[in-house]
Design a protein around this nucleic acid. Structure first.
Lengths: 215, 215
DNA sequence: TTTCGAAACAAACGATTGTTTGGTATTGAC
DNA sequence: GTCAATACCAAACAATCGTTTGTTTCGAAA
């Protein structure tokens, strides 16, 4: 119903923990794995990312998220002033994580096609990995009702691919913008047909790039 | 919330106008344009298609659809037993319309690449045309919670592209399945970045195919 | 030991969701 | 003129939505 792009911004009552001074208050030992799911706020973002990515924004209720974090629905508003703000936080986190993964993948590589392939594999693996943050990056099909904040975050992420494609030795007559958008679309769309048993994300990406590659 | 794939199917009370004997009852002159928006049921499908395609399934309420058709919400249940059934009807209509458009586009053409280009242009024009049925075809990103009926409809539509791509003289080492899925993904994704002022759908598709074309 | 603030619970708010029920015009067929 | 069917209105249903309010818990700083 509510398109989320609406510039509502009513008083925003409690404002909540917008200032994060460092590591004060309840330290919360890192849970099971090696990573740092410190901080309850980050736990909320992780679970919300999984749910938004799986069921979409409208299809995910605040109660779903609260249940996943094992707190009551109202308690979410201690961390985020609204569902839309929570989504923006989730999206920003997903962008930063994906950026890190892509940048790590292309480091130490020099060949333009190799760099692009590494970046695409990292990108697609993030998209197709379940319990991953990255699926929210493509959870909205219609940009029109998206917060501006999210649109610029997406643009900053895609600019990495813009640079990688600019380095490619492509023949004349190839539109690099369409090349980028087509490639990103192909990868995003894998989420609709990918099945864990079959081809790996890396194999899929290599075959896709093999189709678009020119020498 | 409700993933729509749930096999609920409770008694389905009134069953409603499932039998359509032909053209009995209230003839309803074709409204303004030349086409045939005869039949109130079809008007509901048209408006629902536009709304589902624009705001998604979860983002569109039965009240939205009813308001667009200018009837009360409850009256929709005279035509369709549930929101999900309405969506299936909309999807089926979109598939049949798109199939017609694509088949008409490739008729009279023999060159494999020309046939594929014509089909892709027709497909993408349907997707990007506002007030069009076709956007619902890609309104769901997660196949997992989709009615089986819809999945098989989609498969039947995509099989046309399967045949067109099978005719292409592609070099060895090109995976035709990935070729198809990548191409369809590129085209579907245009809906996220297409802007009416810029390049036409036909231009976009030609540039896309120029990238993937081999001789 | 007291104080304080972050984090949560408990319970509800009004609005909106898909849907149901029962009544009412209008129509073409008999 | 009667009849049945179609298409709709009017009004409500329980469930769920995002959100608010007031209170409680509890660790850390003072």
């Amino acid at each position: 119903m509510k398109p989320m792009g609406s510039k509502s911004r009513t008083t925003r009552t409690v404002a909540s923990s917008r200032t994060r001074p460092g590591k004060t208050s309840r330290p919360r030992a890192a849970s099971k794995k090696s990573e740092i799911p410190d901080d309850r706020r980050q736990v909320v973002i992780n679970e919300a990312a999984r749910l938004f990515g799986t069921k979409g924004y409208e299809g995910t209720s605040m109660r779903d998220i609260a249940a996943a974090v094992k707190i009551l629905p109202g308690s979410l508003y201690h961390h985020f002033p609204s569902k839309e703000d929570l989504f923006v936080a989730v999206y920003a986190f997903a962008v930063s994580q994906s950026l890190d993964a892509v940048r790590a993948a292309i480091a130490n590589r020099t060949d333009p096609w190799t760099r692009l392939e590494a970046a695409c594999i990292a990108h697609t693996q993030g998209l197709l990995d379940n319990n991953s943050y990255a699926a929210v990056l493509i959870s909205h099909l219609s940009v029109s009702h998206l917060p501006n904040q999210v649109v610029s975050l997406r643009d900053s992420y895609e600019s990495v691919f813009k640079e990688l494609i600019a380095e490619l030795p492509l023949p004349q007559g190839i539109d690099r913008r369409i090349f980028r958008l087509g490639l990103l679309g192909s990868m995003s769309w894998t989420i609709t047909w990918y099945r864990p048993g079959g081809e790996t994300p890396a194999t899929i990406v290599r075959k896709l790039l093999n189709i678009m590659r020119r020498e």
